Amino acid sequence: MTTEFLKGQVAVVTGGSGVLGAALSKALVQAGATVAVLGRNAEKAHQTAEALGGQAFGVQADVLDRSSLEQARKTIHDTTGPLHILVNCAGGNHPSASTSQEQSFFDLGLEGIEQVMNLNVLGTILPCQVFGRDFAAQGRGAIVNISSMASQRPLTRVVGYSAAKAAVENFTRWLAVHFAQEHTPQVRVNAIAPGFFLTEQNRYLLVEPDGAWSPRAQSIVSHTPAGRFGVPDELSSTLLWLLAPESQFITGITVPVDGGFSAFSGV
């Protein structure tokens, strides 16, 4: 794998201004790609792209609004031409879709569950529909969806998010087969399942108001053989491996990056 093996390719990262999205955008820039950092907040997307340097640029888009995504695709085409890579990093959890001592499973509101399901599932499917047209038209491309270990090891309290990420992994497998059979095997679809990384979406579960680790955070670390939370940049090598020319025979899989969490039985 050469240092700038993505030179000449155009990538779009949804949720690119978030903690994990920014790290993955950085990896793509360093590998030579021109990167469109998509974010619902235009200012934040532009700031993230500016900080990345290279050939990164910010684009405003809402992953739950098809017309917004279509406009983003037009903007990218006008700026760089057709796309070659899509990384679906938009997603996250919300307290309204999680149980707690104050909020039992039976009292969870439909609105909160819908919000999390829509953001993670539809927020992955819609970008694949809009940007995936480029891949079908040109006969090559790569999609990497961001799942979560919560999809494979459902987490207590996290109802909506665990179910949503399980759906993302199922969709990843479905879309890999669809592109291979209906278009070309040169369009590959895979996913990465991060273990526990501290983000703005899960901070409320892992950090106490005084800044100390919550009992839940301490339990997570004790069940992670690596003995710590992940660092966003540690997802980069897996992303680049999935995009590398040497990985042309890899499609329809989900790669865990979890410090051994999924391998540990707790005993």
Rank of each mutant, 00 (worst) to 15 (best):
T156Y: 14
T14A: 06
V221C: 04
L155G: 04
Q30W: 06
D233Y: 04
V168N: 06
D134H: 07
P95V: 01
H183E: 12
A42N: 04
A137L: 11
L126S: 00
R173H: 07
S17F: 02
P232W: 10
P245M: 09
A97P: 00
P154M: 12
T251D: 11
L240T: 04
F197N: 05
S104K: 06
G160P: 10
G81N: 10
S148F: 13
A49P: 03
V130F: 03
T14K: 01
G109Q: 11
V63I: 14
P209L: 08
F131N: 00
Q248Y: 10
S148R: 04
I125G: 02
A51D: 07
R228Y: 09
M1N: 09
A191G: 06
G160L: 13
N190T: 07
A150V: 10
G21E: 08
N88H: 04
L239A: 12
S236G: 14
L240E: 01
L20R: 08
A176H: 04
P127V: 12
L6C: 06
V12K: 05
A45W: 02
L28A: 07
A36L: 12
T172W: 14
E50N: 12
R73E: 14
S162L: 09
S236D: 13
G53D: 01
A61H: 00
L20E: 11
F135S: 00
I125L: 12
A72N: 01
P95G: 01
P232F: 15
A45F: 03
H46N: 13
R173Y: 08
G139A: 03
V37G: 01
S247R: 10
T79E: 15
K44F: 05
V87Y: 03
A142M: 10
Q55K: 13
G195R: 07
V121H: 14
R203H: 10
W174H: 11
A33E: 06
V130M: 05
L243G: 12
V116H: 00
R40C: 13
I146V: 14
G91T: 02
I76P: 10
H183D: 11
V221L: 02
S162Q: 08
N120M: 03
V130H: 02
I146L: 14
D65T: 07
V177G: 14
R228L: 15
S96G: 09
A56Q: 06
F179M: 15
A27Y: 06
S247K: 10
G230P: 15
A180R: 11
R173D: 05
L239W: 12
V59R: 01
T238I: 14
S96T: 13
A176Y: 09
A244T: 08
L175R: 05
T199N: 12
L38C: 09
A217F: 10
F171N: 05
A42C: 03
W213T: 00
N145E: 06
L119K: 01
A217H: 07
I143K: 12
G195K: 13
